[in-house]
């Protein structure tokens, strides 16, 4: 009876080993496929959805850990979720990239008109400040303080405008537009303080 039990136990162990060994290949393949799939979307994902990318990396790291420990069953159990996560990551990164591309295109279009118009604002303010600086008695609607503020504000917007044009030259139209808007807002404020109308 004992011999029979030992034989049955041995047979079961052997079957288990065979079963485990048969899962090793698919588990290794699953991890390798996941790494390949993640690598294919890595650049875009790291740029546009870094947190989501890190989460998928962690999932794969966990699967690799299970693989190293010989827990092939765990690897195969996790594989579908990892595959789905990579798919979601790819879609999310592509969507973000499309949004960024659209925003860049919009900013580029806006820059073409702003880059022509804004220097005219600055020029008009510059000329007005120069003439008012020659005046012995400023008009009633313009104080000495507002003229002094206009002069310093003019220096400020010139510097910011230089930054904006540099950003545009480097292809960062979104950044250029943000700076240009700051220039235009400040310029409008100065023009109002100098009685230059709307």
């Amino acid at each position: 009876m004992k011999k029979q039990f030992a034989w049955v136990l041995g047979a079961m162990m052997a079957m288990l080993l065979v079963a485990c060994a048969s899962q090793k290949g698919p588990a290794e393949q699953a991890v390798a496929s996941a790494e390949t799939a993640l690598s294919a979307v890595a650049d875009q994902a790291q740029k546009y959805v870094p947190d989501q990318y890190a989460a998928v990396q962690a999932q794969i790291a966990s699967a690799k850990d299970s693989l190293a420990k010989g827990d092939y069953k765990a690897v195969l159990a996790a594989a579908p979720a990892i595959t789905a996560a990579i798919g979601s990551l790819k879609d999310a990164a592509a969507a973000k990239a499309a949004d960024a591309e659209a925003a860049l295109s919009k900013a580029k279009d806006a820059w073409s008109s702003v880059s022509t118009d804004t220097p005219k604002m600055v020029e008009a303010i510059q000329t007005k400040v120069e003439v008012l600086s020659k005046s012995h008695h400023l008009p009633a609607n313009i104080s000495k303080d507002s003229l002094a503020a206009a002069k310093s504000g003019l220096d400020s917007i010139k510097a910011t405008w230089a930054d904006a044009t540099a950003a545009a030259t480097s292809g960062d139209y979104t950044g250029a537009m943000a700076k240009a808007q700051a220039v235009r807002d400040k310029a409008a404020e100065i023009m109002k303080s100098l009685g230059m109308g709307s």
Partner: peptide, 23 residues
Amino acid sequence: YTQVHVVVAGDTLSKIAQKYYGD
């Protein structure tokens, strides 16, 4: 962005300069 003044009867350049520049 340069201001424009529309001349009315009685205007002179000096009066316009007085209005816009105070001088």
